[in-house]
Design a binder for these strands. Structure first.
Length: 584
RNA sequence: GCCCCGGUAGCUCAGCUGGAUAGAGCGUCCGCCUCCUAAGCGGAAGGUCCCAGGUUCGAAUCCUGGUCGGGGCACCA
């Protein structure tokens, strides 16, 4: 609807004689915005005021000329000039009514647009290290990323959802030795557990399962296992861990150590997958960092950086000249010990995404990764890709509170709140909605006690209740032995003249604009706020009028309006992964 | 020190490419169920949009400088 009016306006502006004389104005695309106040009609444009300066004319005079050029359209019930030079457009009832019919006709796809058609896009999100269960912060990433992916998909993009699995590197080694020592412990040969190890109980559970699965051969005689290692204390934890990892590799061989590592990683990853699936977050691909090493992708990427002349050696390491591309310092890609860095994997990974044919690479990352954005952009340029293909959306932290107390979170110490626990406490629907109801670059204070104690007052129920109410009306209709006659409703939409009906209809027809906006801005919170508004309009209508009335024509028209509302509620809730129950 | 994000009602937050009288939820106060679900509706109270400049016909929104809060500046991932 909006697009049609925009087209009319654009044509009218282009046909103004003095605009034709200004070549620089040819590319100007007049834009419409929703009028905030119903007095101002449905849409307003400020184009006349924008033209006033270049044309050296009064805004209201220009507006007048534009309106003359507009001619008449059956979409419009009125066009007028207001205030300093706004042009206000009032849509015709017939335009609104055909949009109502379009809602039911389009069903699940109502509101979808085509702005992203033909464009392949990859959204990478969550990508938590498989070193422990997901915590609350990951839940926010999951909810946000999944919603953004849905929105982009609805905007017509060909969207690929991906989780990057960091199954290589030092953190995994630490996890492996943590598991190893827990297995000794459960095998009645307890050894001192490193202060820097992963202390969570889940490691014990994996150890127990591993032993049950017959992994006892990974436990050579433990008597002198920890002899001659450096002292383990908080200050020297890293040195100690390195020595411990080296000892494990020495005793088990690379193959044995690798098995140990895989047992841990596979178990944790399986748990993460279950957790996310239950949360309604699904991925097209779980992409392994290790596979980049095994396939030689990292070496190839580094070769390319080197060939392009962007590396040098210093202190026994190979450095990437990131400063050439605007990063604040150069970065190591191959360590003194010969191993590639995580950053090297990242260059290869992003290059590889491009090679898989994605036009835009969307990374959804924690706010603590902001320093890393310039680095990856630099890396992309060094391998000959445009830095503009990468879009990074940072998600600010979730700060957990229990009442007034901040809950400290650290995966290694095992003191943290898991996503699973949160889901159990507040429910999947409430958690999904809560996580996306705030802008991603806003810190999120999450009070667990509040969320728990008020679970019945959560806004999610308000929206879901509107949906359930409509379903309930239909059940009532059936109980009374009546049927909704779509045709009759459709032919009598002009009977919907109550203020509440006009308002509800207007809100419904705004849905496509909201979706487009939310997709463009990667801002699912717009959908949440919209749904609340829509639910409110429905509740108000419900309280003011009865839908099941004796007058067949009016009843069927009202039911059409209400069914369209149900459809849009469903579609919107679906975007953010929240269910639409038929009864509550 | 440098970089990123934020500061809007008592609390938690929306506010789209600058636009007409700044919004919602919670909390507080007053009303509404012989009627399709009261997890609902109607009404009231509540504001120095952090501060100071600037740009503009017009600034919560853009720019500059402060200030307060969170985060980041590894041969960790």
């Amino acid at each position: 609807m909006k697009q049609q009016i925009e087209k009319l306006l654009a044509d009218a502006v282009a046909s103004l004689p003095d605009v034709a004389d200004h070549p620089e104005l040819q590319s100007l695309r007049p834009e419409l915005e929703r009028a905030r106040d119903a007095k101002h009609g449905d849409y307003a444009s400020n184009i006349a005021m924008q033209l006033a300066r270049p044309l050296r004319r009064k805004p209201r005079d220009i507006a007048n000329d534009i309106i003359d050029q507009l001619g008449s359209s059956e979409l419009l019930a009125g066009v007028e000039i207001a205030g300093p030079g706004f042009i206000n457009f009032r849509l015709a009832d017939t335009a609104y009514n055909s949009e109502l019919r379009a809602i039911l006709q389009a069903g699940k796809t109502y509101g979808h647009g085509g702005s992203g058609a033909g464009h392949r896009l990859i959204v990478e999100f969550v990508s938590a290290n498989p070193t422990g269960p997901l915590h609350v912060g990951h839940g926010r990433h999951a909810a946000y990323g999944a919603s953004v992916a849905n929105l982009l998909s609805a905007a017509g993009y060909d969207v690929h959802r991906e989780y990057y699995v960091n199954d290589a590197g030092r953190q995994m080694d630490i996890l492996a030795v943590s598991l190893w020592l827990r297995m000794y412990e459960l095998n009645d040969t307890p050894l001192d557990f490193p202060v820097g190890g992963y202390q969570g109980d889940y490691v014990r559970e994996i150890a127990s399962q591993a032993l049950a699965d017959g992994a006892r051969d990974l436990l050579p005689d433990g008597g002198n296992l920890l002899d001659d290692l450096p002292p383990d204390n908080p200050a020297g934890a890293d040195v100690y861990l390195d020595a411990l990892i080296a000892r494990a590799r020495e005793r088990l061989g690379d193959e044995g150590f690798d098995r140990l590592l895989r047992i841990a990683a596979d178990a944790i990853l399986a748990d993460i997958k279950d957790d996310l699936a239950e949360f309604g977050v699904v991925f097209d691909e779980w992409f392994s960092e290790r596979s980049l090493m095994d396939s030689g992708a990292i070496d190839r990427a580094l070769d390319r950086v080197q060939t392009n002349g962007h590396t040098y050696s210093k202190d026994g390491a190979i450095w990437f000249r990131a400063t050439e591309f605007g990063d604040e310092k150069d970065r190591v890609v191959i360590r003194e010990n010969g191993r590639t860095t995580y950053f090297a994997s990242d260059i290869a990974y992003h290059l590889q995404k491009r090679e898989r044919g994605f036009g835009t690479l969307v990374d959804i990352l924690g706010a603590d990764h902001h320093g890393y954005v310039a680095r990856v952009r630099a890396g992309l340029q060094a391998v000959g890709e445009s830095p503009d293909c990468l879009e990074v959306d940072l998600v600010q932290f979730v700060v957990l509170y229990r009442g007034k107390d901040k809950v400290q979170m650290s995966t290694r110490s095992g003191e943290f709140e898991t996503l699973r626990k949160l889901r159990d406490e507040v429910g999947d629907d409430a958690a999904r909605l809560f996580f996306v109801s705030r802008s991603n670059d806003q810190h999120l204070d999450f009070d667990l006690e509040l969320a728990k104690s008020r679970s019945n007052e959560n806004p999610v129920y308000y929206i879901q209740y509107a949906h359930a109410r409509i379903c309930s009306v239909l059940r009532e209709l059936e109980e009374r032995g009546l049927q909704w006659a779509q045709e009759r409703g459709s032919n009598n939409l002009d009977r919907l003249s109550e203020t509440h009906e006009v308002e509800l209809r207007q809100i419904l027809c705004r849905y496509p604009e909201i979706l487009a906006l939310a997709a463009r801005q990667r801002a699912p919170q717009h959908v949440v706020h919209y749904l609340r508004e829509l639910a409110q309009a429905l509740h108000t209508y419900y309280n003011a009028h009865r839908f099941i009335v004796d007058d067949d024509e009016l009843r069927d028209a009202r039911l059409l309006l209400v069914l369209a509302t149900r459809q849009v509620l469903r579609n919107g809730l679906d975007m953010i992964g929240v269910s639409a129950p038929a009864s509550m």
